[in-house]
């Protein structure tokens, strides 16, 4: 018999004569304590994210590319990794061309194997979209895909994320329901709640452990 058969057989023997426990998931326990008035929702998200060293800006939707450029300029960064196949990627590229911005735009448009070294060591910053955010825990939802790969939010020391103000939900449970996650998940769904950190030495918090040292969230208000 295979290991699989043995394990399953042992487990089934243990349950002999018993019935599965009924499903008594009480969703109010994960929703009611985590509900916010619309005007408080973004404030909650913002304050939680700021507590873990995230920079958060709220701005009119049209202004974000200029803000990105300003962020790079202030930090004297030389390049920015972006996703050319996305709507915001195209918007960024158009702005960059018009403004004749001097930072290099690096398009994530080929498999990682072709430029691993460069991605690992030479990219200063990245910009990605988000699939919304969760106020209760101060988390961004990232839904990486073919156009906006997984490592964009992990390798560069600075990660800039765009968040639509209208896509902030109260809590994880509501987010799962609204976006119907069980119906189809991407290869790698992510919740990101701040820049990478560790407290493994004496419980002293240090940022930039393996992922981004800085996370900047641009909350875009509809015009």
């Amino acid at each position: 018999m295979s290991a699989r058969d043995n394990i399953l057989k042992k487990l089934r023997a243990g349950l002999e004569g018993s019935t599965p426990r009924p499903d008594q998931f009480d969703e109010t326990l994960v929703t009611e304590p985590w509900q916010y008035a619309p005007e408080d929702r973004i404030q909650r998200l913002r304050s939680l994210m700021e507590t873990v060293h995230t920079e958060v800006y709220t701005l009119a939707a049209a202004n974000w590319p200029a803000k990105v450029q300003e962020l790079l300029e202030n930090r004297r960064l030389a390049n920015l990794l972006y996703a050319p196949g996305t709507g915001h990627g195209q918007q960024l590229a158009e702005f960059w061309a018009e403004a004749a911005a001097e930072q290099n735009l690096l398009a994530y448009d080929r498999p990682i194997e072709e430029w691993k070294e460069e991605l690992f060591w030479q990219v200063d910053a990245s910009i990605t979209g988000t699939a919304g955010a969760i106020a209760a825990t101060g988390s961004l939802v990232l839904w990486p895909d073919r156009h906006e790969p997984r490592l964009m939010s992990l390798l560069p020391p600075l990660h800039i994320a765009l968040l639509k103000a209208s896509e902030v939900e109260d809590n994880l449970y509501v987010m799962m329901e609204k976006q119907n996650w069980p119906a189809g998940l991407p290869t790698n769904l992510l919740l990101v709640s701040g820049p990478s950190k560790t407290a493994d030495i004496e419980q002293v918090l240090a940022y930039g452990a393996h992922g981004p040292k800085e996370l900047v969230v641009l909350i875009l208000e509809d015009a």
């Binding site: 498999p111 988390s139 950190k197």
Partner: peptide, 21 residues
Amino acid sequence: QPITTYVNMISGPRKADELDG
């Protein structure tokens, strides 16, 4: 912590047209 910095949900290997993973 209210949540960890990363919650990483993996549902498969890299798809044919994906660029990393």
